[in-house]
Design a protein around this nucleic acid. Structure first.
Length: 941
RNA sequence: GCAGAAGUGGUGGAAUUGGUAGACACGCUGGACUUAAAAUCCAGUGGACAGUAAUGUCCGUACGGGUUCAAGUCCCGUCUUCUGUACCA
């Protein structure tokens, strides 16, 4: 009997696929397209562990399935090879990031190839490749040369805005939050200097240079975007983050807030993911209200979602960073205010968040005038007001907002009640309904909705406010004080940023003497010998040449990691194009990604930025789709099962897990490779690895074994619980790995990796192999006889189920379906071509190597890939009769064999005619007979 | 605090979307083959009770109620666990 030699089979077919370009996608053919994409990996130094391929296997199954279904499938892969970790790794190992990145990619590729993925490698992209980032730089320039027209609700060339200024000035423009300080007319515009004009335009450009409060991470030596900060510390490394004012490039994603929100409704994405984007965009409607400051010409603008409570305002609170703080503070309060502002500035974001319960603040001494009642109300400063949200100032309504209430209580400020019949002495009443307004002049006796409207109308009439919509979404900081990223195609002429003409791109990364940024944020590119732009020669020259008339300094920052990943899915469509980021024909043919698989951790980063860039490229007519990813699936994370050796506190005793119950012990990570499936530790190996336990006392189980404690954690090198897919491929083969990862459970669910059940899946493949070799000595026995009805039934049952499973992405159940099919066909001794050939095609997406081998043994000399998917024929499943359970009052009494051809009434009649029914009824008349055809008959007596 | 998802044997997980709960696999038990082990194959495996047995009856999908001839599935309440998010005015 021929043996299932998976190693040679897998090697053979991987080679075959590579040589024959089996999975090359064709551009613009007369065939329906399907684009299946994985979130491309970050080639880290650690290589892949078994968790990484989960999504790749799922997408590969789907891609292969779609090929069988007659689609022209684009299923590419590449590398997100710019960014912080690659650089950190380079700093640690003292090598050039381009070298470590290349090495890491080579390792990744080797691992990926072993798993038999059907990627079209001819289309590979790398974000750190100059041929690629040339186009990232191009998009940056296009963004710079565009503005968002709120009238047309789309991005347009900046030239159109300049023409408006030249012909009618600024007065006619609808403004957003980032308004101009004052309007200007045509004559004024013409008199502006270049610097002044640029200052005006920078309020409109979709990427702009601005002095802004940023999240500065001293440890990493760079600024971070909001989505790169988790719980007040950096996502990478967990370092503290402080706020700092710096001149930075920003992306005006806020211009797209409403469209990014609206677009979500059309997408087939998991609801939790959409929710988290909605929350991140954070639309809230309310009113902006202006308060005059007594004795000053300045106004304080606040945003509120509760204009209906405007008569409940008893003070204003400004964020400590608010620009008017120093201006309006009275001399008597100056010292206290200064101290308070200083103290808050020194606290890191994390401290501020950790300590939300402590109420702090200080009085400015100034007063504001209530726009409707005319009352004087004190202006306070408090750090519960965030500079980054709304206007950085709030109108405090202590009776209607708990934070305002707490602040008022703490500083003994008045808490006027404006709600009828509601007690607000203990806590604020924060509900909108049910409540009726009181003590509020013309708002009295109105409910929330009516008062909301009336208050806004009154404010608008007086010119002190208007109804507005506020978004939480901030513009994204786009500069990083880092080396390993895309250089900005920007030089500075008299302090004004200028774009390098496109034909001179890419602007490639220069060599530098050290990659590490300085702690106060001087970027590594400042160390480059050659980093100035010669506008005459159109090339990079030495900074020493800056005196020369045509030479100007280049931007020293680089772009963030998400720059390259925001558009890579388009480059796969036409990766070699030198004239465009992708050709129009390719873009129109492939459209957008039909199926995108990746982790949910990118909800507010990559997945939001990509949508922003795609909408921009759409507005400017470069592409014809305005959303990048139609359907998205978040694969769950595969967790590691860490192993802990229990030891006494002093480290002198090692205790086996089951004996450690009532002893005081602590767990020490040990490498999972030293632990067997039943949790038994290879003590010798452990002590060789950790010699400090050489002389430790060892307490074993009564049976002499030493057991470890297991715990589920994230898979990571530092937890010694990493399982390498290479090892699984060596031991069981890639097909087993693929099937097993799918078999583990639903794709979207997180689950721990356990090798325990893998033998079941491996055994199944052996059985499958055997099925095709029945009877013959060494050979393959497949005959051309007519298949039995039973075998046909098994086949078509399987076709139907597997088809349904794939379409619903429940790959785990189709693996079970295959197991059942093979078991049944084995016991039927089915060896007919008409059964076994379709079965191969059915299995090919899941276990492609063994499928190819069996397919070729069938006598075919082409790949099984793309062979027509077997068609389900219902006639093979039709049974001549079915056994119905007959139940009385819901309890099954007996079963009855009935023909399927019978109608509902016929079944009922047949049941009633049966002697056993009559016996059960004992002469009574049934109240009701319920018949569900094909399922059940219930008689209610 | 808010939002979302989930809770089924010893374990991972099925259940045609309201129709015979526990498919399939792991593990475990017993058996076959073997000097032995591994591998392989066969049988059993939710619980309780009755029976020599085939089998039968009852209880069972976190907990408490409800709708229905019929509920793991739908509705109400409670508890628990994950996963986001958090002074958002």
């Amino acid at each position: 009997m021929s043996k299932y030699t998976f190693r040679s089979i897998e090697e053979k077919w991987q080679k075959y696929w590579a040589e024959n370009q089996t999975f090359a996608a064709k551009n613009a053919v007369d065939q329906p397209k399907f684009y299946v994409l994985d979130m491309f990996p970050y080639p880290s130094g650690a290589g892949l562990h078994v968790g990484h391929p989960l999504g790749y296997i799922a997408s590969d199954i789907y891609a292969r399935y779609k090929r069988h279904k007659g689609f022209n499938v684009l299923h590419p892969q590449g590398y997100d090879s710019f960014g912080l970790p690659a650089e950190q790794y380079a700093i640690q190992t003292g090598q050039h990031p381009s070298k470590t990145t290349r090495d890491n990619i080579a390792r990744y590729r080797e691992q990926l190839d072993r798993m038999g993925f059907s990627f079209d490698w001819a289309r590979e992209v790398r974000t750190s490749d100059p041929d690629y980032y040339r186009w990232t730089q191009w998009i940056f320039i296009e963004l710079y040369n565009s503005w968002y027209d709120p009238d047309l609700n789309q991005a347009r060339p900046i030239q159109a805005l300049i023409e408006i200024f030249e012909s009618e000035g600024s007065a006619g423009l609808k403004q957003t939050m980032d308004a101009l300080e004052s309007d200007f007319d045509v004559a004024q515009w013409k008199n502006f200097s270049d610097l002044e004009k640029e200052a005006v335009l920078s309020h409109f450009r979709l990427t702009y240079l601005a002095e802004s409060e940023v999240n500065w991470c001293p440890e990493l030596g760079t600024v971070l975007a909001n989505d790169e900060i988790v719980n007040g510390v950096s996502e990478r490394g967990g370092h503290p983050v402080v706020r700092k004012k710096m001149k930075q490039w920003s992306m005006r994603i806020s211009a797209y807030a409403q469209r990014l929100l609206d677009g979500l409704d059309q997408l087939d994405w998991p609801e939790p993911l959409k929710e988290s984007q909605r929350h991140w965009i954070g639309r809230s409607s309310g009113a902006s209200v202006c308060f005059d400051v007594a004795g000053h010409s300045d106004q304080i603008e606040v945003f509120t979602t509760r204009p209906d409570t405007i008569f409940g305002v008893s003070f204003l609170t400004l964020a400590p960073e608010h620009e008017l703080v120093s201006k309006i503070t009275t001399s008597a309060q100056a010292k206290a205010v200064e101290q308070y502002v200083e103290a808050t500035a020194q606290r890191s974001e994390r401290e501020r968040m950790a300590d939300v319960k402590t109420i702090s603040g200080v009085f400015t001494g100034a007063h504001a005038i209530h726009p409707l009642s005319g009352a004087e109300i004190p202006i306070w400063i408090g750090d519960y007001v965030l500079a980054g949200y709304g206007t950085g100032a709030v109108m405090a309504v202590p009776c209607g907002d708990q934070r305002d209430f707490d602040f008022a209580r703490h500083f003994d400020l008045p808490i006027p009640n404006i709600f009828q019949n509601i007690e607000v002495t203990q806590e604020a009443y924060t509900l909108k309904e049910p409540c009726v307004i009181d003590n509020s002049e013309f708002l009295n006796d109105l409910n929330y909705a009516k008062a909301f409207k009336a208050a806004i109308e009154a404010l608008e009439a007086k010119g002190y406010g208007k109804g507005t919509v506020n978004f939480r979404l901030r513009d994204a900081v786009f500069s990083r004080q880092r080396y390993w990223g895309e250089p900005f195609p920007v030089y500075y002429k008299n302090g004004v940023p200028r774009m390098i003409e496109f034909e001179h791109l890419p602007l490639t990364l220069p060599e530098v003497s050290a990659y590490l940024p300085t702690e106060d944020g001087d970027p590594p590119l400042g160390r480059a010998n050659l980093w100035a732009w010669d506008t005459a020669e159109c090339k990079v020259v030495s900074l020493d040449a800056v005196d020369h008339q045509s030479v100007f300094p280049l931007e020293l920052n680089t772009m963030p990691g998400w720059a390259g990943s925001s558009w890579y899915f388009f480059r796969y469509m036409d990766p070699k194009n030198q004239d465009e980021f992708a050709g129009k024909e390719a873009l129109d043919y492939w459209g957008n990604v039909d199926l995108y698989i990746g982790g949910s951790e990118h909800a507010t980063g990559h997945l939001l930025y990509s949508r922003f860039w795609v909408k921009f490229l759409f507005d400017r007519g470069f592409i014809s789709v305005d959303e990048p990813f139609n359907k998205l699936i978040n694969q769950g994370m595969i967790l590691g099962e860490s192993a802990f050796v229990q030891r006494s506190k002093d480290g002198k005793t090692l205790v086996s897990a089951a004996c450690a119950k009532d002893k005081e012990v602590q767990g020490v990570h040990c490498d999972v490779s030293m632990v067997s499936v039943n949790n038994e530790l290879d003590l010798e190996a452990f002590i060789a690895w950790r010699p400090e336990y050489q002389n430790a006392t060892i307490i074993k189980e009564p049976d002499g074994s030493f057991k470890v404690k297991r715990e589920v954690e994230k898979m990571s090198k530092s937890k010694f619980n990493v399982v390498n897919p290479d090892d699984i491929c060596d031991q069981y083969g890639a097909d087993t790995l693929r099937l097993y990862e799918m078999f583990l459970g639903p794709l979207e669910q997180s689950k721990p990796w356990s090798t325990a059940g893998i033998t079941g899946v491996h055994g199944f493949l052996k059985k499958l192999w055997k099925l095709y070799h029945t009877g013959a000595q060494d050979g393959f026995l497949v005959n051309d006889e007519a298949p039995s009805p039973e075998a046909l039934k098994v086949l078509h049952k399987t076709i139907k189920k597997v088809n349904e499973d794939i379409e619903q992405f429940s790959f785990n159940t189709s693996v079970s379906t295959f197991m059942i099919a093979v078991n049944e066909l084995t016991s039927l001794r089915a060896s007919q071509r008409a059964i076994l050939e379709p079965l191969i095609v059915l299995m090919a997406p899941y276990a492609p190597h063994i499928a190819e081998e069996l397919w070729s043994k069938m006598g075919h000399n082409s790949s099984v890939s793309g062979q027509p998917y077997p068609v389900f024929e219902p006639k093979y499943l039709v049974e001549s009769s079915k056994t119905y359970p007959i139940s009385f009052n819901g309890k099954t009494r007996f079963t009855l064999e009935l023909s399927l051809e019978l109608s509902k009434d016929d079944i009922e009649a047949a049941v009633m005619a049966d002697a056993r029914t009559q016996d059960q009824l004992k002469g009574r008349m049934p109240k009701k007979v319920i018949v569900v055809p094909g399922k059940i008959v219930n008689i209610v007596g």
